[in-house]
Amino acid sequence: MERHLGLDWLRIGAFGLLIFYHIGMVFVPWGFHVKTAQPQDWVALPMLALNSWRLLLLFVVSGYASRALLIKGSGTPGFAANRTLRLIVPLLFGVLIVVPVQPWIELTTQHGYHRDFGYFVIHDYFRFGSLGGVLLPTWQHLWFVAYLWFYTMLLALLVAAFGRRSAQGLFDRVFGTVLVWLIPAAWLVAVSAWLFPGIGPTNNLVDDLVSHAQYLPGFLFGFALAGSPPALAALRRWWPSALGVGLLCYGVVVAIEIEWPGSTTPAWPYGILFASARAVQGWSIIVALIGLADTYLNRDLPWRRVLTEAVFPFYIIHQTIIVGVEGALLPLRLPAVVEFLILLATTVGGCWTFYAIGREIGWLRPLIGLRLRERREPTL
């Protein structure tokens, strides 16, 4: 199975947007671990252009990559062991070392906690309970890694039980048509507007059915897509229409958000219309992006290998930098645009430094999600 370079570029782009998105969370009037002094309602509009598809796309791409890893690996047990090493080790490192500053800043800036960081880590972080409404210890943004590992283990069990291609023919027949766009969009509408109306994600794995109802099918869809030329052909065929519908639905979402900003509850039936339009927007944009990537981006370019390797370390560290820097900036009461520029520069610079140092230190590489360096035989 050949590597799909277009999906590599999508993964790079999605993780890049994640930095902008989490910086935006500082300024939008939604809940976050640290907030600027004066959040602005208008920031929600560009955020709504991204948040209906950014995470689902990553699970789809991860499912696609999982098939390639399974094919070239040493069987299903080896695949499961490899993914556990590559995901659980960085997750534990993140929870123990990278993440703690985030709940500390949240507690000190939003919940009246007055202890210093050293005291917090030694006495409170590992309490395995709640402090000021914050559950500790926590994985914060690294919930994605835990969910990805869980879905990967479910996939390994399915493959071991039923075989790699048991339903591939059915998938090809169904999703090799316009249904590759319509069926997932309809399912996401059902999840958002019917099964779990008004219910947000919890990110705690055990009690997060609304997330699992979206991300697990997306992950399995990506796995099946990796072995389905008909479905990829359908995505190439329908991406212009999907892009148009996605933009139209985004317009509906924006109109409702402007009329009922922030946490205001829209009048009936606009809440259902908002959820439905957002769901259709999300899958339509994913169809458009995969179709575009398969048509125009499935090629190698300079920096792809480095960026493909760097995105996981970037993901591990980026939110801690954002929360830590904003926590330091809050007492200065800087203009929002100055805060944004400082956050952007320090986050990009900090992520690159974290990756550049970590990749050169052998024992640190698996902790930040990189493969161990292969030993080279000495030359005479």
Rank of each mutant, 00 (worst) to 15 (best):
V206F: 11
N204M: 08
H212I: 09
Q214E: 12
V210Y: 09
T202H: 11
A193E: 03
Y215F: 12
L195V: 12
L170R: 14
Q168G: 01
V191A: 05
V206G: 09
I183T: 05
G198A: 11
G200Y: 14
A167G: 09
A190W: 13
I199E: 09
W187P: 00
V210T: 14
A186D: 01
F175P: 00
F175K: 03
P184C: 03
V191E: 02
L179G: 06
Y215C: 08
L170S: 13
D207F: 13
W181I: 08
G176C: 05
V180F: 02
S166M: 12
R165N: 15
V189N: 01
A193I: 03
P197W: 11
I183M: 11
A193Y: 05
L205A: 10
Q168T: 04
A186F: 11
F175H: 01
V178E: 10
D208K: 06
G200H: 14
L170P: 05
V174T: 05
G198I: 06
L188S: 14
T177L: 04
G198M: 10
T202S: 13
A167R: 07
R165F: 15
L170F: 09
P217T: 10
P184I: 05
R165T: 15
R173E: 00
L195Q: 07
N203K: 13
S192T: 14
L188V: 12
L182Y: 08
V180P: 04
A167V: 07
S166A: 14
V180Y: 05
L209V: 12
A186Y: 05
A185G: 02
W187C: 04
P197F: 06
A186Q: 02
G198T: 05
V189G: 00
G200T: 15
D207Q: 15
T202V: 09
W194T: 13
G169F: 00
A185K: 02
Q214P: 13
F175V: 05
P184Q: 07
W194K: 13
D208R: 03
A190P: 10
W194M: 14
G200S: 13
I183N: 07
H212W: 04
L216M: 08
V191D: 03
V206H: 10
L182Q: 10
P217I: 05
L179R: 09
P197T: 11
L209T: 08
L182H: 09
W194E: 14
S192F: 15
Q214A: 11
V178G: 10
D172N: 06
G198E: 07
A167T: 02
Q214T: 13
G198Q: 10
A185Q: 02
A193G: 06
G198R: 07
A167Q: 05
Q214M: 13
F171Q: 00
L179C: 08
